[in-house]
Structure formats: structure tokens, C-alpha cells
């Protein structure tokens, strides 16, 4: 080893700004904050529900009705779809290749299967809460 090894000058804090692939990576990884946020929002809803009072539940629903939350949810939904859901589906064939006998299922079929299951699950949830009859 040389006495003065070459150390690439890479910033610990801003390295992902140098390359569009890294930027995409970091935009994808920070979706974990949204997952955490919505988990705790749901836990809050469960806490209110556990009180067992219809009035407090109605009050909770009213407290969620404001323009700021509309903006937050709308942006979160679009961001989450692009960088979490669709990216997760895109990476699925690489993370979980499916062996069918001698061959492997094609990447495309795995991705399409994910979209189909996602559409069905979303429709099921919508049906469950009465958004679609």
C-alpha cells in the first residue's frame, strides 16, 4: 500500500447530489419517513377508537379536516406512489426472482403481477370502507 493512499473527496452528507441514480436512491429511501408518519397517524386513530366513544371519533375525524392535511396527504400520496410503491414493484423481480421449474419467471410478468395484486387490494379496501359499492 502506498504511503499516501488516494482518498476520493466524497462528502459524507451530500454525496447523493452528484449523480441522478444516487438522487433517485435517496428519494426512494426517505419514503420510510412517510411510512412512519402514517403508521403513527393510524395508531393515533386507534387510540381514539379505543376510547369507544362515537363522539370522540367524530371529533377526531373533524380534527383531520383542514387544508394543510389535504395538501400533506395529496403530496404524500403522489410521492409515495412514485418512490415507494412503483419503485418497490420495479425492484421486486431483482429482490425475489421466481423459479418456475427449469426457468425463471420473466421480470415483466412479476412486475405486472404486483400491479394487478395492488389494484385488487386497493379496490378491496375501497369496497370495505364503502367508497365503491
Amino acid at each position: 500500500m502506498s504511503r499516501r493512499p488516494y482518498i476520493r473527496p466524497v462528502s459524507n452528507t451530500t454525496w447523493y447530489m452528484q449523480n441522478s441514480r444516487y438522487r433517485r436512491y435517496i428519494l426512494r429511501e426517505v419514503t420510510c419517513l412517510l411510512v412512519g408518519f402514517y403508521c403513527f397517524l393510524t395508531i393515533w386513530a386507534l387510540a381514539v377508537l379505543a376510547a369507544g366513544s362515537p363522539d370522540r371519533w367524530a371529533e377526531f375525524l373533524r380534527s383531520q379536516q383542514n387544508p394543510v392535511m389535504v395538501g400533506v396527504h395529496a403530496v404524500a400520496l403522489i410521492y409515495f406512489l412514485i418512490y415507494m410503491t412503483f419503485d418497490w414493484f420495479k425492484l421486486a423481480p431483482k429482490a425475489m426472482p421466481v423459479q418456475l421449474g427449469e426457468k425463471k419467471a420473466s421480470d415483466r410478468s412479476i412486475v405486472v403481477a404486483h400491479y394487478v395484486v395492488w389494484a385488487l387490494l386497493t379496490a378491496f379496501v375501497a369496497w370495505l370502507v364503502g367508497v365503491i359499492p
Binding site: 412517510l34 411510512v35 402514517y38 397517524l41 393510524t42 377508537l49 369507544g52 362515537p54 371519533w57 367524530a58 375525524l61 383531520q64 379536516q65 383542514n66 392535511m69 389535504v70 396527504h73 395529496a74 404524500a76 400520496l77 409515495f80 406512489l81 415507494m84 410503491t85 418497490w88 414493484f89 395484486v117 395492488w118 387490494l121 386497493t122 379496501v125 375501497a126 370495505l128 370502507v129 364503502g130 367508497v131
Partner: peptide
């Protein structure tokens, strides 16, 4: 979360705009 959170966020969005789905009324969600 990839499969279900878009629906979950969508539900919070519906609540936020005041269009509470019938399934989120107290009796049904409880």
C-alpha cells in the same frame, strides 16, 4: 406498505377533504 399505504393515505385524504367514507363511521370501523 407498498401495497396498502396508497389506500391508507387515500383514506386520510378523503377524511381531510370532508368526504368521510361510510366504512369509517364509528360503528363500522369499530
Amino acid at each position: 406498505s407498498a401495497f396498502l399505504f396508497p389506500a391508507l393515505i387515500g383514506l386520510f385524504l378523503l377524511v381531510a377533504i370532508g368526504a368521510v367514507p361510510p366504512g369509517l363511521e364509528f360503528d363500522r370501523i369499530y
